[in-house]
Computed example of a mutant assay.
Amino acid sequence: MSRNDGRTGRASAPVHHGEILQGVFSHKGILHRGLVTLPCALYSVRASFTPGNDSSLTVFPRWKSKAKRAAELALAELGLPAHGHLGVSDDVPLRRGFGSSTGDVLASIGAVQEAFSSPLPTETVARLAVKAERASDSVMFTSTTVLFAHRDGEVIEDFGYPLPPLRVLGFGSAPGAAGDGVDTLALPSARYSPEEIRRFAELRTVLRRAVLTKDVGLLGEVATASARINQRRLPIPWFERILSIAEEAGAVGVQAAHSGDIAGLLFDRDDLAVDSRTTHAQALLRDAGMTEHWEFSTDG
């Protein structure tokens, strides 16, 4: 059994900016729902866990039930009772597609691990995250790109390298100011046609090549195709207009949160003209009524 000397464990977790690819994929002869997450450094979640001697585990804020469940699962995994106090804080906008609940869960698991100096394998953390919130994004895999079965908690494919380096011009896809977001839990599970499932297999192959060769253009093609398929489930307003803006500004593609209202224009981070391209794209988005913008880069 792991032991604690009375210290508080602290951890932070990243968020994401929706998906590069999401659909249904074959794994061990069975079709699984899977996704490839776009990491985002704009926001983070922080958690602290202090073991206690009473017979309960408390959390603040009290509504962070998924974070509490994650801490309970991590303690059980370490063979420890669910005693102590968990605190969670963040600056993540809710219901937008940034993966705030996954951040809560991962930071909480991390705080428990740190409190007892007992690191868990990433695969175990992924499994616990899915148990805690029913479906989880893949931001716990920080050094590689994975196709993740977000409802099963296992890796469908590890592509072996991070995503190619990107500059992302993110924006709220609802015209005007910040929207009300999306109630992810209220969304029905997507149902894909046989043709779409075949298309996902093709996109998986293209993504594999994009990651291996660091081809930003291929990555953009995958993201755009996935966003287009997602139009049937959670439509982005003025999607065709956004595609034309991407082309005019020289973006390599468009990506979207498949359960949120944020989207992004993808640019080659190392393109010498990337600053002027993103500035031009901002003006075009603003003219189209999409006035909420932000920027970030991925490390590659």
Results as ranks from 00 to 15, higher is better:
Asp91Thr: 02
Gly289His: 05
Ala177Thr: 03
Thr122Cys: 04
Ala201Met: 00
Pro237Ser: 07
Met140Asp: 01
Asp215Thr: 10
Ile229Ser: 09
Thr291Lys: 06
Trp238Leu: 15
Ile30Thr: 15
Leu21Arg: 11
Arg208Met: 01
Ser259Trp: 07
Ser143Gln: 11
Leu73Tyr: 06
Gly97Trp: 05
Asp287Arg: 15
Leu86Met: 07
Phe171Glu: 00
Asp275Tyr: 12
Ala190Ser: 12
Leu243Val: 14
Arg10Thr: 14
Ala41Thr: 13
Gly18Asp: 07
Val105Gly: 01
Val15Gln: 11
Ser138Glu: 05
His83Thr: 15
His280Arg: 15
Val155Thr: 10
Arg10Phe: 10
Ala288Met: 13
Ser65Ala: 13
Asp268Ala: 15
Ala177Tyr: 00
Arg96Pro: 00
Leu169His: 07
Val216Glu: 02
Gln231Asp: 08
Glu196Arg: 10
Val222Ile: 06
His16Trp: 11
Arg232Gly: 13
Ser244Glu: 15
Pro175Gly: 00
Gly103Ile: 02
Ser189Gln: 12
Val112Asp: 05
Thr298Met: 04
Val125Leu: 14
Ser189Asp: 14
Ala115Arg: 04
Ser12Cys: 06
Gly250Gln: 11
Thr298His: 08
Val216Ala: 02
Asp261Gly: 09
Ile242Glu: 12
Pro51Gln: 03
Glu221Met: 09
Arg33His: 15
Glu19Met: 11
Val15Arg: 12
Phe148Ile: 02
Thr37Asp: 08
Ile109Val: 11
Ile156His: 05
Tyr161Ser: 14
Asp54Ile: 03
Gln231Ala: 13
Asp215Met: 02
Asp215Gln: 04
Asn53Leu: 09
Pro93Tyr: 11
Val112Leu: 10
Trp294Arg: 00
Phe25Arg: 10
Val254Met: 10
Glu292Arg: 14
Glu77Phe: 03
Ala273Phe: 14
Ser189Cys: 00
Leu207Met: 04
Arg241Gly: 14
Phe60Tyr: 04
Ala227Asn: 12
Leu284Asn: 04
Tyr43Trp: 14
Pro14Tyr: 05
Gly87Arg: 07
Val105Met: 06
Ala149Asp: 04
Ser297Lys: 13
Ile242Trp: 15
Ala71Asn: 01
Val88Lys: 05
Val216Met: 03
Glu221Ser: 14
Val211Gln: 01
Glu157Met: 05
Gly99Gln: 03
Leu75Arg: 01
Arg127Tyr: 10
Pro164Thr: 13
Asp271Pro: 09
Val252Phe: 09
Tyr192Val: 03
Val168Trp: 05
Ala263Gln: 09
Asp54Arg: 11
Val168Leu: 01
Ile30Val: 14
Pro237Gln: 11
Ala281Ser: 07
Leu21Met: 11
His83Phe: 02
Gly18Val: 12
Gly34Leu: 09
Val222Cys: 07
Leu163Lys: 08
Val155Lys: 07
Ala174Ile: 13
Thr102Gln: 01
Leu169Asp: 01
Val36Pro: 14
Leu187Cys: 06
Val130Arg: 13
